[in-house]
Design a protein around this nucleic acid. Sequence first.
DNA 1: TATTGTTATACTCTATAACTATA
DNA 2: TATAGTTATAGAGTATAACAATA
Lengths: 148, 148
Amino acid sequence: MNTAHRNAPRPDLAAMVVPLGRALMAAEKPVLDAHDLTMWAYAVLCHLDETPLRTQAALAEAIHADKTRIIAVLDDLESRGMLTRRPDPKDRRVRLLSLTPEGRRLRDTVRAAVQNGEERLLGQVPAADREAFLRSLRTLYEMSQGRR
Amino acid sequence: MNTAHRNAPRPDLAAMVVPLGRALMAAEKPVLDAHDLTMWAYAVLCHLDETPLRTQAALAEAIHADKTRIIAVLDDLESRGMLTRRPDPKDRRVRLLSLTPEGRRLRDTVRAAVQNGEERLLGQVPAADREAFLRSLRTLYEMSQGRR
DNA sequence: TATTGTTATACTCTATAACTATA
DNA sequence: TATAGTTATAGAGTATAACAATA
């Protein structure tokens, strides 16, 4: 006899969320590849525009990356003219990061493609549930990131 | 001017789901540590009971692990009396895997603790949305795993 | 002396390839 | 020869520690 239903009316949240996340990333990958972007590069593009950041360390923390890890990413994006990295005149140790217009265009293009794919998935969720799902996901996400 | 709202009425699904998954795993960790279980070991305990499996390779595939990776996990769980691994008399190459009563007890204890923590999180989601969220999450998870 | 960014090194996790035992 | 399981090796990704420039 299977007693699982007594103790587990549902699978663990983590057991659904983590694999779903992996699948979403896998679905993103072809889009990113088509634009020669790594996942980290895309994260940089997405985050940089929303919140202009004064230091690389702050950017790294924002996207949950190690500060040493995003350096190659920034090198690449800078060399491709997607962002600029200039020393702050007030403190020449820090690098002021900003997206170029091309960087913003690239981000918009990729994001549109990514979200287009995601919409196809969301289409399988009953319309009546969709709003509540997105609202809840956002709540849980923000809580998990410590902004409540 | 921030034009993000035009192109991104919401953050990417992946950008919310993946970090949420990381946070859920981090929240699980102390519970697992308290019972000397790795994430993989817990995954084995959870999956083994639901679907009795005849080969280790099948188990590995079910939890999205490499077959070489779960061997140390099985060694450990077996030595602790949480599962048995006996050769199939019909084909002595394959190992029949089954959870012992202690293994089932351990799984139940840990799962209860894990889900207890998750319920606290879910409590922050408006009750009206909670059902729809769980239903949708399950749908998306199952779709992403190829069972539709 | 402390901090930002960078480079070099070491470590962890994961997958690939080689081996054994059965068939 | 083919397959299940195991072991050994190599690779990718990540973090730690040392370094240079600036304050």
